[in-house]
Structure formats: structure tokens, C-alpha cells
Simulated assay, not measured.
Amino acid sequence: MSGDAATPSAPVLRPARDGDIPQIVDLVQRAYRGEGGWTTEAHLVDGARAEAAEVRDMLASPAVHLLVAEADGMLQGCAYTRIDPADATGVVRAELGLFAVDPALQGLGLGSRLLEAQVEQLLGRGVDVLMIQVLQSRPELQAWYTRHGFVSTGQAVPFAGDPALLKVAGLGMDVMERPLALSPGVQPG
């Protein structure tokens, strides 16, 4: 039944706007620091996962594409990509981040839709490799990214936030990459 108030609308993917910032911050906080959903890091990290000023800076950057999934006026998911300049070999990488789906809607395919929409726009901008940093001690997240074409580079970097927020001292981030449109002979990593 179209128009039935009890039937939620399918989410529409669109670029984020300034007016979305409060909902983005809330969504990311619930997904990563809340008690529900399989993406929570509440047992590993304290504090805010994103701040309004950080999201505002993303929206202002021409290198960033921040995408949201919206239905019935509510944000259900978000993901950003930031394109880096080409490296010494000419490979263009982009970072995937601020990737969150409402915990009540996780497991329904919205994360896959957001990821593939980002990949499509990156291909149109000449990006060769999509990179993500995944918090260590999260094998279920790494497995999800592996199922979506990412491979571990074997590289680890320090935790991206304030290390004082870590509940597990020394926890870092594992780097994973997904080849998009690589030139012949170019390998991720």
C-alpha cells in the first residue's frame, strides 16, 4: 500500500547537507558507541565517535563526498570518502569513513548500498583503490569488509582518535584496501 503511514519508505541515498549534521553525529554515535548493533565499539572505546565540527569540515572539503541514506525525514545511514592525491606511482586512493547504519536497521543491506554508491562515484572520479582503517579486535568488521572486496594490507596504524579514550591500551587500526579500477600490474598496499 503506497502512502500507508505504517509502511516505512525505502531510504534514498543523497549527498549530505549542513542541516543533516546533528542527525549524522547522533547516528554515528549510536552505531559506534551505543549498546545495540553489531558495529558498536563501546566495549573498546569511550567518547564521541564524531563531532559536529568534524562533519562540518567534511562537508566543506572538495575532496570529501559524504553520502546519507534518508527515509521519512530520518537519516538511516551515512558514509564519506576522501580522495587523496595520486601517490608516486600514480595510484589514486580514497579513504572510506564515518560509515554507519542505524543499529535497528543493520543487517538489511543498507551498508552495502552505501558502500557501492560510494564506489560508483569514486570510479567516476578516477579513484583506483578504496582504503579503510578498521579498529583491531573487530574480526566481524574485517570479515564484512573482506566479503565486500577489501583485503588486508598487513599494515597497522595508531588509533585515529585520542588514545586516552581506548579501553584496551595500544589498540590500533588495521588498514584494508579494495581495488577499484587498477591499472594493469598495480596491486593494493
Rank of each mutant, 00 (worst) to 15 (best):
D57Y: 10
T7Q: 15
A71Q: 08
G126M: 01
A143C: 01
L110G: 07
V186T: 13
D4R: 11
M173D: 07
A104P: 00
W144A: 02
D128T: 07
A53L: 13
L66C: 05
L135M: 14
G172C: 03
V55R: 10
G170C: 04
E140P: 00
T7C: 13
Q23V: 11
D128A: 15
A53I: 09
G109C: 08
Q106P: 01
A104L: 06
G161T: 00
K167Q: 09
A117K: 01
A69N: 10
Q106A: 03
I132E: 08
A5Y: 06
A63H: 13
A48C: 10
H43P: 02
T81Q: 07
Q142K: 13
D72F: 04
V91D: 11
S183I: 08
L67W: 05
M176Q: 08
P163C: 07
V151A: 08
Q187F: 08
A100N: 03
K167T: 01
G124T: 04
V91T: 15
Q133C: 07
V28S: 13
A10G: 13
Q133S: 09
G73N: 01
T81P: 09
E140R: 15
V168W: 01
I132M: 14
L130D: 04
G34V: 00
R30Q: 10
D102C: 02
E51R: 13
A53C: 02
T40F: 03
P184A: 09
D18G: 14
T81G: 01
T7W: 12
V151G: 08
Q29I: 06
D102V: 02
V127N: 09
D102P: 05
L135G: 11
E51Y: 06
E116Y: 14
R30D: 04
A50H: 06
G189C: 03
T39L: 09
L122E: 04
Q133G: 12
P8F: 15
Q136M: 07
V129C: 13
G107W: 08
E51V: 07
Q76E: 12
V168H: 10
T40P: 00
R178N: 02
G47W: 02
T40A: 05
P11F: 00
R56P: 01
L180D: 08
Y145N: 00
V157L: 12
M74Q: 14
E177P: 00
